[in-house]
């Protein structure tokens, strides 16, 4: 570490530390995008379907993990039921698409419905703090998942199938949701936009309040800010990010099932964020890609894949407490600082 020298210490003062770390995240996301374009080119050349669609799914779950990181990493809220919003988005999108196969109608409906649904459930969840928050979010998700599981109009335990292939009209071109390369690139752009929106929001003064909430919630009111309003707003925002990611799921796979709302989905997202690096945003995307690929590869090799994933998770928590990003991001940040000087 060179940061011991006084030169670096002054450089430290010149740059906002978190701003630098965030810029390092942006660089990592740019690297991910470049790698994704390379991957898409190779996939297109080899006429691949499976890996492109697997990567698309990884990005969709990456968008979902992003929303978990907004809560966990930036606001200090551990939600154990966040799959509720992912599944909610998926179901709303599926129901709209079955009526009318319009991408924009589905997205509009998901946005509007999640705003209301996230606000109502957020009011309940945000009455409590800490471990109780984790338990209440878990509870709400279980209740909702069971309700869906037993509602015939929503397909009950069978889920909904027959969601049509959707043409996504972008004005200058139309992407079909079953075209492996095109839909992969579309999902990439979509998730990057979610990332940009989240990164922008967290960089505003509102984002600073969230940071303050995480560090010392009792002090925030003394500074003249409402903690309740900030917590509720970010909760709804995270719900919307999760739901918009979930809305892409039925377009890719053509079905939705109550398992999308189950604890396994919520738990996976938390594992994704921890492996990628809590509070880095980029880590959520990297974590999702790593976990999805690992699960697919190890799952084929052995039926004991859950043990392997479990050990990996423990190893990361013990040896890399800041996740993958904790190893890579400081190096990028150092280079950025060096470059700026």
């Amino acid at each position: 570490m060179r940061s011991a020298s006084s030169k670096d210490a002054s450089a430290f003062l010149a740059f906002d530390r978190s701003g630098l770390a965030m810029r390092a995240s942006h660089v990592l996301v740019v690297i991910l995008v470049v790698a994704a374009f390379g991957f898409a080119a190779v996939g297109a050349a080899l006429n691949d379907t499976f890996y492109l669609r697997l990567a698309t799914e990884a990005l969709i779950f990456g968008g979902f993990a992003l929303s978990v990181d907004i809560l966990l990493g930036y606001t200090g809220l551990l939600s154990l039921g966040h799959a509720l919003y992912f599944g909610f988005g998926a179901y709303v999108s599926a129901l709209v698409l079955k009526e009318t196969p319009s991408f924009w109608a589905a997205m509009g409906a998901v946005l509007a419905a999640t705003l209301v649904f996230g606000f109502i459930t957020g009011l309940i969840a945000n009455r409590v703090r800490g471990v109780y928050f984790a338990l209440v979010t878990f509870g709400i998700a279980q209740v909702a998942a069971k309700a869906v599981y037993n509602t015939r109009a929503l397909g009950a335990s069978d889920g909904l199938i027959g969601i049509p292939i959707v043409p996504i009209n972008l004005g200058f071109m139309t992407v079909m949701s079953n075209a492996p390369v095109a839909f992969f690139l579309f999902t990439l752009v979509f998730v990057i936009l979610l990332y940009v929106a989240a990164a922008y929001l967290l960089d505003t003064s509102f984002g600073r309040i969230l940071g303050a909430l995480r560090v010392n919630e009792h002090r925030v009111p003394f500074l003249g800010y409402s903690t309740h309003r900030a917590r509720l707003s970010i909760y709804v925002f995270a719900a919307i990010i999760a739901a918009l990611s979930g809305a892409l799921y039925p377009m890719l796979r053509g079905f939705v099932s109550p398992e999308l709302m189950f604890f396994t989905t919520s738990g996976n997202a938390v594992i994704t964020v921890v492996i990628g690096g809590v509070g880095t945003l980029a880590g959520a995307l990297y974590g999702s890609v790593i976990l999805t690929v690992l699960k697919s590869v190890i799952g084929t090799m052995t039926e004991h894949h859950l043990i392997v994933i479990g050990i990996l998770f423990m190893a990361v928590v013990i040896f890399l407490p800041k996740g993958l990003m904790g190893v890579i991001r400081p190096r990028i940040a150092r280079r950025l600082r060096g470059g700026a000087r």
Binding site: S157, D158, G159, I161, G162, R253, G254, F255, S257, P258, E259
Partner: peptide, 10 residues
């Protein structure tokens, strides 16, 4: 049944 229906569509 959920898996059978979804895989059937795939």
């Amino acid at each position: 049944s959920g898996s059978t229906l979804a895989v059937g569509q795939t």
